[in-house]
Design a protein around this nucleic acid. Structure first.
Lengths: 150, 150
DNA sequence: AATGTTTTGTTGTAAATACAGCAAAATAAC
DNA sequence: GTTATTTTGCTGTATTTACAACAAAACATT
């Protein structure tokens, strides 16, 4: 059984630190880009849902989003028939920034796939989807306080 | 061109936070497990080399390793014919801890690959290796202060 | 309807993370 | 051999990250 854990970790760290560095030009600090693009793609989403989607700690996501609000890139609005949830929406400025992020992400994705054929790239996503499902399940249990039998 | 960036990021974050949580039982704080296993596998390695290998910021790695030293899990020794480099070695206690980490990592890897056949798993590593090479190259340039044409 | 459970937002807090920048040693270039 | 460049370790510092814990709202159970 080959090791994919380490490979995935290394690639992810590299891509994340590249993005974080590049988005300093947009006055975005570490991690913020993640949330901003997603909010643009899924306007109205709430923080907890976004955190679960990104597999990020709730409070980490909440604080990062709060900062986006302070910076005027995102808005929180009370949900229509719900006094608890706060729906997230990008501002016009936020949308502009998100376009740059999207472009950069696409570029990075392109670089990552440079040496793969089209079919290989499809295979890769397909396999990663399967991996993701299993890992997500474990993440949820562990985050919920349960322990794994390793 | 399918998106693999996000998939890789999500999987990596999930696995990392699972590990960090589980290793609290070993009194290891966020990130430390990464360095400890590698030092055990490559005794005598220096901090900068390890950081490059893991694709982690130099100073982040340095501080994490320093904490491992303080905790008595790792030792720094002056290199034989070199007054600058500090070679890293695990202590006996460090090696014991590393065994648990290794077991956990193998378990996570196993979980991740549950739904893949043996050949699919091989394919996946093969593809990830190709991805890794390209991404590593970009990481090095960006970390060195150069910018990419996205 | 009343009670118990889950979800969501939020804060306090300790720690990791990553930037810039320094000095000393090592290596490369001349 | 001397000078320039790179490597390595380290520190100061601002910020993010993630834990625990709380309250209020929503939802589920009876």
């Amino acid at each position: 059984m080959p090791d994919v854990l380490r490979q995935i970790g290394t690639i992810a760290r590299a891509l994340d630190s590249i993005s974080n560095r590049e988005f300093q030009q947009l006055a975005l600090s570490k991690g913020q880009y993640l949330y901003l693009v997603r909010i643009c793609e899924q306007p109205g989403i709430i923080a907890d849902r976004l955190a679960a989607q990104l597999q990020v700690d709730r409070t980490t996501a909440a604080r990062a989003i709060q900062k986006l609000v302070t910076q005027g890139l995102v808005e929180k609005r009370a949900a229509i028939n719900n006094r608890k949830n706060k729906a997230l929406f990008p501002t016009v400025l936020g949308q502009r920034r998100a376009q740059v992020i999207e472009r950069e992400n696409q570029y990075s994705n392109q670089v990552a796939l440079t040496d793969l054929t089209a079919t290989e790239a499809e295979q890769l996503t397909h396999l990663l989807t399967k991996v993701s499902q299993r890992v997500t399940a474990d993440w949820q249990t562990v985050k919920a306080g349960q322990s794994r039998p390793y």
